[in-house]
Design a protein around this nucleic acid. Sequence first.
DNA 1: TTGAAAGCGCTAACAC
DNA 2: GTGTTAGCGCTTTCAA
Lengths: 343, 343
Amino acid sequence: MAAPTSRRRASVMDVAREAGVSVGTVSNVLNRPDVVKDETRARVEQAIAALSFVPNGVARQLRSRTVTTVGALVLDIRNPYFTDVARGIEDRLSLDDHTLMLASSDDDPERERRYLRLFEEHGVLGMLVVPGSAGTRAVEEVHARGTRVVLLDHPSSIPGIPSVAVDDRAGGALAAGHLLERGHDRLVLLNGPHTIRQCVDRQRGVRDAVERAGLDPDEVVREVTVSGMDARGGDDAMRRLVADRDGAAPEAVVCVNDLVAIGAQRALRALGGTALLRSTALVGYDDLDISSELASPLTSVRQPALEMGYRAAAILLEDDRSVEQHVVFQPELVVRDSSTYAG
Amino acid sequence: MAAPTSRRRASVMDVAREAGVSVGTVSNVLNRPDVVKDETRARVEQAIAALSFVPNGVARQLRSRTVTTVGALVLDIRNPYFTDVARGIEDRLSLDDHTLMLASSDDDPERERRYLRLFEEHGVLGMLVVPGSAGTRAVEEVHARGTRVVLLDHPSSIPGIPSVAVDDRAGGALAAGHLLERGHDRLVLLNGPHTIRQCVDRQRGVRDAVERAGLDPDEVVREVTVSGMDARGGDDAMRRLVADRDGAAPEAVVCVNDLVAIGAQRALRALGGTALLRSTALVGYDDLDISSELASPLTSVRQPALEMGYRAAAILLEDDRSVEQHVVFQPELVVRDSSTYAG
DNA sequence: TTGAAAGCGCTAACAC
DNA sequence: GTGTTAGCGCTTTCAA
């Protein structure tokens, strides 16, 4: 294998010269091979090989205004839920031979802006965005400027922007309802910031369930905001909670996602071993693959991540008024040990 | 927010006309604002705002040959190990205001080719690639044509291509050595295909450890190839193993990664409950965040994923001969319950 | 400090 | 079937 040449990449001109044809013919070989005489095409293909010619996609895109790249911006690439969504997206894209540019905002408005901008400047075919705390303003602007957008994990209230989401309010109610049914009358909600729509909706759902049980949400539900929506955040929050109660664990806890729940479990075990862990009824959210494999297998609210990604990508590509533009999936409760030891 | 106009995006020409200046001046405002008279600049900026002008990055890249995008191709985006690596890459890139285009080959040569091609045609600044079963051939070609490449998770044997990897052979030896020390003299290795370099090296390491213990690897080690390097693959393989042995679990198992180990645990629990699970000593690889939270907390070989990504990105960006071009990190064994119940 | 004009590499008319 | 040429939107000389 030769060393990397610092020479300029070969261009259609070079290929044309090498093959003794015009650039138009080279372009034809590249894009409409059937229109070129066999013998000419062979010569051009030989020249392409000889020069290791790789077409400049940037120039092509500029000229032909055809793109095959879709951008996706998720909240947190380290959260398996979002990688499942991404996988669903890719599954759909690859059907049309399109490719995915994946990025993670980490709910940092600055990063979100940067990536939206990058996608827009790059002229992607469209983008799939999970908006963060900063709201949908930035996305709306992108959309207003003419780029196709589908909101992910966010019910769209914006005319012209389709969306794919899960009914988070129903999910919150599912989680809390389960704990109430099991006789718990005090709930802690380990939630993310209220700037994130999912967190607000799940909290509302929790309160719905409490009201439905004939109780007063303000008395029953104690909401604690985690420092981050990952294991670390759940761990920290649970430590604070236990410290507040002189070493006792809260009776029943709803966590905003499985990672937070896993962190909360970790804290409980660290502070008081299995005994403390089992004194709490815990429900997570997302039903990650690994949630069933935990020391205390997690009761969790399942969201159809892969399907959501697939559907969102389909809406973007099909851009078809006959397809439903606002899809809401229903979550589902999966009951395991973490919520059934206690009580 | 206005509906998406199907109108063409505004161009520098439009901005120039609106502001009553030439396109050159608009370009200067965009790229060298200090060289433009305050008052002119203000007028141009106003025009930009009025027209919602977003520069066409494709045209810019074509003309100025400056890129800020780096491509990364990992084996499996759903494996937290690789998302950690990706995160390390991003951390380094964002220092230079560069952005990451992330893709997953799923060890499918076809997908690998597609993404390498996409990156190359797009003219990325460079790429970070975890090669799959298909080997490094495709990457070498890309490199030979002049694109900067850093191999990830693969010790480079290719002149001019830097690499960042972990010593997998040492890791395999660490895992097996631990089990041997605990008195096991039959090991099952749940491995991925030998077309993947990591798998071969880890197997060699396992055999090293056996030899070091004065035993014969051919007698001690039984290697089983999983159908996929994820929980599903581990689950399937373990079921086959147990069936082969009339319902008994193997004494000691080294898994090619934590996901496989988690799947293996799942199978054991499903087949024979905690009793069967605890009759096996199990070691994983990667030390995922959640591995410590499992029903049977996983003994695992830790690889510094984040640091690897960071380092690889640094090498790519710095492109500096004074920086070591072949970095090999050393893995580390983390002992937990999964390997210490049994025996 | 600004404007005019060339050209990045490609595709798509259109002419032959 | 193939060649010629304009031009995608931008940056970058060079001149004024």
